[in-house]
């Protein structure tokens, strides 16, 4: 990992002592995404390098428009990579056909920012969960077994399957929908979970529940979680290592303690100093 060229970027040092032994599950070199051409040309992600290890929680932190969603879509294989290479579990990622993509998506799944637009509002909740069972090869399981799996998944996220069956996703609250998303992940058991600001659209109370569930997923299934957020405090709370993103580039990376307690890049310092400022302002206004 000493081959990183981007200036100011420290090697992604694993946080936990044992992490050095953990194998790499997703590694990128010079990954770039350019949208449009001519006057509308935007470099959303600009030659970034990264190395994510199994069983870690990695945060990508950046302001709005810094390219977080773009990089997550590239990692998911939902949009093409303009330049650079992504290795999946030590081998170059191959998603050239529909079949290979399906194989890849058994290993990597996602939770999106807006729960209200994440579900097809014409499909019932059962259909969403059954899809996951089918994808894991459970198409021919007896009906009771499928119901048992769905019930188990629902109770993992503190939902009751009996109350959800035959309902539509839009009949749930935002927090419930996001939990349903996690139930989906629980059924799919992918190696890597990409969570793109999963808590930014829901209330603080549900937020804590969601974060706890993500941690539980990591602990129980040894899932690698890539957590995308604009909230550096949240990143510190949840993650093992942190990547700081500014204008499509990683300006700093490393263990969560190292990056946040001893920031080197100006951008990181600004992000950190922004956090207490907000609370100070709040205090003033309430006094």
């Amino acid at each position: 990992m000493s081959d990183k060229k981007t200036t100011g970027v420290a090697p992604a040092a694993p946080a936990a002592p044992a992490a050095a032994a953990r194998p790499s599950c997703l590694r990128g070199t010079g990954v770039t995404k350019v949208f449009g051409f001519g006057e509308t040309r935007t470099v959303a992600v600009d030659h970034v390098d990264f190395d994510f290890h199994e069983g870690e929680i990695i945060s990508i932190v950046g302001e709005s428009g810094s390219g977080k969603t773009t990089i997550s879509k590239m990692l998911l294989g939902l949009i093409s990579v303009t330049e650079g290479q992504i290795d999946f579990q030590g081998k170059p990622r191959d998603i050239s056909s529909h079949k290979k993509k399906n194989e890849y998506w058994k290993g990597i799944q996602a939770i999106f920012q807006d729960p209200f637009s994440s579900f097809n509002m014409f499909n019932k909740i059962d259909a969403v969960l059954l899809d996951c069972i089918n994808m894991r090869g459970g198409k021919n399981l007896p009906k009771e077994e499928k119901v048992r799996l769905m019930t188990e998944a629902c109770s993992f996220v503190n939902l009751k399957y009996a109350e959800l069956t035959n309902k539509y996703p839009f009949e749930l609250s935002g927090g419930q929908m996001q939990r349903l998303m996690i139930a989906r992940i629980f059924l799919l058991k992918p190696k890597i979970l990409l969570a793109d600001e999963p808590t930014s659209m829901i209330d603080a109370c549900s937020r804590a529940t969601i974060l706890d569930m993500l941690l539980k997923l990591r602990d129980e299934i040894n899932m690698t979680i890539i957590f995308i957020t604009h909230d550096i405090g949240l990143a510190y709370y949840i993650s093992d290592s942190v990547y700081i993103m500014e204008h499509g580039k990683f300006v700093e990376s490393g263990g969560a303690d190292e990056v946040i307690l001893t920031p080197k890049a100006d951008y990181t310092k600004r992000l950190i100093s922004d956090v207490p400022k907000i609370y100070e302002e709040w205090d003033l206004s309430t006094v």
Binding site: L78, K101, A110, S118, N123
Partner: peptide
């Protein structure tokens, strides 16, 4: 580019299925 279409892709649905179930009803 809506998330429910992305989710459908991640669930391994074919292009025709996505067009018929995730785009047409909308």
């Amino acid at each position: 580019n809506r998330d429910h279409v992305n989710l459908s892709k991640l669930s391994g649905h074919s292009m025709f299925r996505i067009i018929f179930t995730d785009i047409l009803p909308y």
